[in-house]
Structure formats: structure tokens, C-alpha cells
């Protein structure tokens, strides 16, 4: 029992350290919390939503943001079959080479290619966005505190700026962005995409879908990890119980002697 109390102290103090840090990070803005299917213990990705999210990414975000860590073949995890993957990859013109003549050339994408980035380099990305850098989105959900809720909120956080705030040229007011002034113009509008599966493309729907897609891209191992985790932990609990009773049995003569 003493030991349990002690465990609680340990867990409490680590939380204490970490929360100190979260507050230190200055995230005083609260975002609405959503129940993501991937946030729970047995969590998994909503495949249909992630596919729609990919469509939003491809048709809207990909104009400015790359996802250089993800390959087209990885999309198989969202339920696309090989032919669909080939077709998706082939929509992109990939730079390749040099060939036998020493020339660079372009060819249609293959599933093994990484997602094509919209800009050849960071400087070009900045130049096209008024000096601001549109970050790569492959890890964006893990790279922000409370990533999924943050992104979902950010995409819907565009508003008229309050009167006392002057919004400079090329900046936009967003109530969830730290500092409220962001260089990304509002990307999502009602019916901004026409979903292949016929779902109504409301702003919230698109924000939810693209967040699901990006959460998958950040943690493609999530489903496997959680499934394996459940098995491992069940095994370990049984093992702990067994070793506890073996211990009791082995120690019984010593304890009884006293």
C-alpha cells in the first residue's frame, strides 16, 4: 500500500514537471476538444474520413505544403488498392535522372515515390508565400501540442479581426494561432472540394477529414502500435500476477518462521 502511494507520488510529480512545461510553452489559447477515433486506447483511423482528407490535402493544402516523408504507396493503409495507388501516383510529374545521356527528365510518379513537394526548395516556398514558410505537413500533428485539436481549430479559426488589431498586408487573423496573425490565407471554404464519395463538404467536415489524414501521416504505425500494446500489456499483467504468487509461495517459509 505504501508502495502504491509512492507510485502515485511519482506519476504526480512527472505530470507536475510536464504541465509546468506545457504552460511555459505559452499555449494559453484553448481549442475545442473533439473525440477523435484515433485518440482512444483501442483507437484506429476512420479510413473513409482519411481518404476524404487526402483529397482535401491534394486539392487544397498541397498547393503550398509538401509531405516529403510520405510515399504514395503508404496510402495503401487508407484502403486504396494497388491500381488506385498507381493511378494516384501517376497524376504527378516527378523529376528523375540523370539518365544514360546524363540528362534529367520527368516521368509520371510511381507508388514508391515520395509525395511531390510544391516547391523545389525552402527559399522558393518562402518567396511564394511572402516570406513565410509553409511547413511540411508529414509530422504536423506530432509537432504541435495537442496537434489534432489544434489543427482542426486552426483551420476553422479565421475571423474578422477585432477593431483594435491591425492586420498587415499578407497576414490573416486567426483566433487559434499564437499571436493571432498568420501568413496562411484561409484554406477551407464551404464546398471547397467536391468529395468523391458524395459527402457534403462543409468547412467542419473538411477540417475533420484533413486532420484525420494528417494524424495518420504523422503516426502511420498507430493502429499496429495500439493493437500490439493491448496484447503485450495483457500478457504482462498475467505474468505479473503469476510472478507475484510464485514470490508469495517462495517466501512463505521465511515469512511464517517469524
Amino acid at each position: 500500500m505504501k508502495f502504491l502511494k509512492f507510485l502515485v507520488i511519482i506519476i504526480f510529480s512527472i505530470n507536475f514537471f510536464l504541465f509546468g512545461r506545457v504552460f511555459a510553452a505559452g499555449s494559453k489559447i484553448e481549442y475545442p476538444e473533439k473525440n477523435w477515433s484515433f485518440s482512444t486506447i483501442f483507437g484506429s483511423f476512420d479510413k473513409a474520413s482519411a481518404q476524404r482528407g487526402f483529397q482535401v490535402y491534394k486539392e487544397v493544402c498541397a498547393g503550398c505544403h509538401g509531405m516529403r516523408l510520405v510515399s504514395y504507396r503508404n496510402l495503401a493503409a487508407l484502403g486504396y488498392n494497388q491500381d488506385e495507388l498507381k493511378a494516384i501516383a501517376a497524376q504527378f510529374e516527378i523529376n528523375d535522372g540523370p539518365n544514360d545521356e546524363g540528362e534529367m527528365f520527368t516521368r509520371p510518379g510511381r507508388p514508391s515515390d515520395k509525395f511531390l513537394s510544391p516547391y523545389p526548395n525552402d527559399q522558393a516556398a518562402r518567396a511564394a508565400n511572402g516570406g513565410a514558410y509553409p511547413p511540411d505537413l508529414s509530422l504536423i500533428i506530432k509537432a504541435r501540442p495537442n496537434g489534432a485539436n489544434y489543427l482542426h481549430a486552426l483551420l476553422r479559426g479565421y475571423e474578422e479581426a477585432p477593431n483594435n488589431i491591425k492586420v498587415p498586408e499578407g497576414m490573416y487573423y486567426n483566433k487559434y494561432y499564437s499571436g493571432n496573425l498568420i501568413a496562411m490565407p484561409q484554406p477551407l471554404y464551404e464546398d471547397g472540394v467536391e468529395y468523391l464519395d458524395g459527402t457534403k463538404a462543409s468547412k467542419d467536415q473538411m477540417a475533420t477529414d484533413v486532420t484525420t489524414f494528417l494524424a495518420w501521416a504523422s503516426e502511420p504505425e498507430l493502429e499496429e502500435r495500439k493493437q500490439l500494446g493491448v496484447t503485450v500489456i495483457l500478457f504482462l499483467i498475467v505474468f505479473s500476477i503469476l510472478s507475484y504468487f510464485s514470490m508469495r509461495q517462495i517466501w512463505a517459509p521465511i515469512k511464517n518462521k517469524n
Partner: peptide
């Protein structure tokens, strides 16, 4: 001290 180390 750990808590304060995390604060600005």
C-alpha cells in the same frame, strides 16, 4: 525545482 525548471 523540477517544476520551476519548466517555467519561464
Amino acid at each position: 525545482l523540477g517544476y520551476l525548471g519548466a517555467k519561464p
